[in-house]
Each structure stands twice: as structure tokens, then as C-alpha cells.
Computed example of a mutant assay.
Amino acid sequence: MSIRMGNSCVNCDNLMGDDTCKVHAVKVSTSYTCDSFEMKAALKDDPNCVSCARYEGPSFSNSQNVAPGMLCSQWAPQNAQA
């Protein structure tokens, strides 16, 4: 059996903060899904120096003070997709 990301309202971009679907205007829960499902965009979940787009590049200013696993306020994901 394969493992997949759930196609539920919790992962849908159309879910509003009060658990209402902005397409259908109804209150939903984790067990709901529909044909208008739009996956939420997510950033890479491993933010550190090695996964940063600036790491060892021309805009990288702290080459003497970094190590894998460290994080700074300038982190930019290498592969962000929307």
C-alpha cells in the first residue's frame, strides 16, 4: 500500500480560518474533500544553511559562521513552489 498526502479540506487552499470552504460556503472538517480541491502551497520543511538558496552563493555573507543545521533570518528555500 502506498502513502499519499490526504486530499482533504485541511490541505486545501480554499479552507478559511474558521473552517469554512470559500468555494462552497459551508463548514467543513478533516473528512471532507471535493472536486474543487486546490493543494496549499508549502515551503520546504527543513530550513537550515544547507537548504538555503543563498548558501555559498554570491549573496552569502556569513561563510565563516555557518554549519549544516543552523538557521538565520535570511534563509531562502532552494525549491519553493506555489
Rank of each mutant, 00 (worst) to 15 (best):
N79S: 15
G69E: 06
V10L: 15
V50C: 02
Y55K: 01
C49V: 04
F60R: 08
M16I: 06
L71K: 13
E56P: 01
Q78L: 14
N79F: 15
G69T: 07
K22R: 15
R54G: 01
N14D: 01
A82L: 07
N62V: 03
Q64K: 11
C9D: 00
Y32L: 01
Q64P: 05
N65A: 13
A42F: 01
V10R: 12
N65M: 10
S63I: 12
S31G: 15
N11E: 13
S63M: 13
G17R: 05
V10Q: 13
M16S: 13
E38N: 12
Q81K: 04
H24A: 01
L15C: 07
N7H: 11
D19H: 08
Y55S: 00
K22C: 15
V23A: 06
D45E: 08
I3P: 09
D45C: 07
C72M: 03
S59E: 01
V26Q: 02
N65Y: 11
N65Q: 13
S73R: 02
K22Q: 14
C9Q: 03
I3V: 12
V23D: 08
T33E: 10
G17A: 03
G57F: 05
N14F: 00
N7C: 05
V66T: 15
M1P: 03
S73F: 02
D45S: 14
V66C: 15
C52N: 04
G17W: 06
G17I: 04
Y55C: 04
R54H: 14
P47A: 03
A53F: 05
K44I: 02
A67K: 11
N79H: 14
P58L: 11
Q64H: 11
C9S: 07
A53P: 00
P47K: 06
C12V: 05
P77C: 07
Y32F: 15
S8C: 10
A42V: 07
S8K: 04
C52V: 01
F37R: 08
S31N: 12
Q64E: 13
K40R: 15
M70H: 01
N48A: 11
G6A: 14
S59R: 04
L15G: 10
N11P: 11
S63T: 14
S73Q: 00
S36M: 08
P77H: 01
Q81A: 07
D46V: 13
P58K: 14
P58S: 15
K44S: 12
L71Y: 09
E56C: 11
W75M: 01
P58A: 13
A82N: 02
S36F: 06
S61T: 15
R4G: 00
